[in-house]
């Protein structure tokens, strides 16, 4: 299944400086497990000790904030693009 994961600058140390890496899995949670297998350390950056999405990390599937979807249980399909984006202040 072709799923792309967009990796922000602060995490590229884990991906050999790649900005896009392939993902896999039926849900977002499974995809993070898959990312961890290929890029050890990734999971701890995205999820906290309780396994929830860290407070200052935003995850998007095709541009939609997964907090408006089913969080880590959000389903994935072929062609989806996941973005990992640190929270940003502003206005």
């Amino acid at each position: 299944m072709a799923i792309n994961v967009r990796v922000p600058q602060p995490l590229r140390g884990l991906t050999g400086n790649l900005s896009i890496v392939p993902g896999a899995g039926g849900t977002l949670g499974e995809c993070i497990t898959h990312l961890e297998a290929n890029h050890p350390g990734m999971r701890a950056r995205i999820l906290d000790d309780a396994g929830d999405i860290r407070r200052f990390v935003n995850l998007y599937i095709n541009g939609e904030d997964v907090r408006f979807m089913e969080g880590l249980a959000s389903p994935l399909k072929d062609g989806d693009e996941i973005s990992i984006v640190p929270a940003v202040a502003g206005g």
């Binding site: 590229r12 900005s19 541009g63 973005s83 984006v85 640190p86 940003v88 206005g91």
Partner: peptide, 17 residues
């Protein structure tokens, strides 16, 4: 909306360091 603009810029900052 702004949240979309914000997300875009958070990604662009990696493209235009």
């Amino acid at each position: 909306n702004y949240d979309a603009v914000n997300r875009l810029c958070a990604e662009l900052v990696s493209v235009h360091e």
